[in-house]
Computed example of a mutant assay.
Amino acid sequence: MEDRPRVRYSALSNQDEIWPEPGRGAYTEDLRYRYEPVEKVPWKSILLALFLLLFGCLFLVISHLMFINHMSGDSSQAFGFLVLGILLFLPGFYETRIAYYSWRGFKGYTYSRIPAY
């Protein structure tokens, strides 16, 4: 048998020592994962989102008017306006909604969720 030095190992900590229950330990949340972004309002991004939202709505209305023959135009033009309206409306609505909820102070919504340009 080989002669090995004897090494003493410390006892393993149990789960309560690593993650104490809220209210029992020294802290209630793990501060390593705490993130507080700087609340800087991205005005350019919000204006771009409003621009996309308004023009998306305008193109959707134009395509609707072309489909019901209230405006003159071919059906291929109406489909073009419909596709452009959808492509403009969706990101505009999404970012405008985030900006509105951030402005109103809803939990989970911050201006940091809007990309800044």
Rank of each mutant, 00 (worst) to 15 (best):
A99E: 01
L90M: 14
S76R: 00
P91Y: 01
F59T: 15
S75K: 07
T96Y: 04
L58R: 04
Y101L: 14
V83F: 09
F81E: 05
A49F: 05
M66I: 13
A49S: 01
Y100P: 02
G73V: 06
M66T: 07
F89T: 01
G85S: 04
G73F: 10
E95D: 09
I68Y: 08
F89V: 03
Y94P: 06
W103N: 04
P91D: 00
V61R: 03
M66R: 08
D74F: 10
R97S: 15
G105M: 02
R97K: 13
I86A: 02
Y101Q: 12
L88Q: 04
T96S: 11
G80Y: 11
Y109S: 08
R104S: 14
G73R: 11
G80M: 15
A78V: 15
G73Y: 06
L53C: 00
A99K: 00
G73T: 05
L88K: 02
F59G: 15
G105A: 00
L82E: 12
C57P: 07
L87Y: 09
R104I: 15
G73H: 09
F59H: 13
E95T: 11
F67R: 03
H64W: 10
S76N: 00
A78E: 10
G92E: 07
P91K: 04
E95Y: 07
V83H: 06
S102D: 07
G105C: 03
G92L: 00
V83L: 10
M66E: 13
G85V: 08
L60G: 10
L87M: 14
Y101N: 13
G56V: 03
T96V: 00
Y100L: 14
T96H: 00
A49E: 07
Y109M: 08
L53H: 03
R97Y: 11
E95C: 02
F79M: 13
E95V: 12
L65A: 11
F67S: 00
S75H: 10
I62V: 15
G105V: 01
S76M: 11
S72F: 11
L82F: 14
F93H: 08
C57L: 03
Y94L: 12
L52D: 03
Y100M: 14
R104Q: 12
L54D: 01
Y101E: 10
L58A: 15
Y109V: 13
L54S: 05
F59D: 11
T96D: 12
S75L: 04
S76W: 12
I86K: 03
S76H: 04
L60S: 09
S102T: 08
M71C: 10
H64D: 10
S75F: 13
F106S: 15
F93C: 14
H64F: 12
G85L: 04
L50H: 05
H64A: 10
L50P: 00
F51M: 04
F89K: 03
H64L: 15
L84S: 14
A78H: 05
F59K: 02
L82V: 12
G56Y: 07
I98M: 02
F81W: 11
R97E: 08
L50W: 09
F51E: 01
F81P: 09
A78P: 04
W103M: 01
C57D: 02
S102E: 03
L65H: 01
I86E: 05
A49V: 09
A78S: 12
L50E: 03
F89N: 04
F67K: 02
T96W: 07
L58N: 11
L88H: 09
F93T: 14
L52P: 05
F89I: 06
G85T: 09
R97C: 06
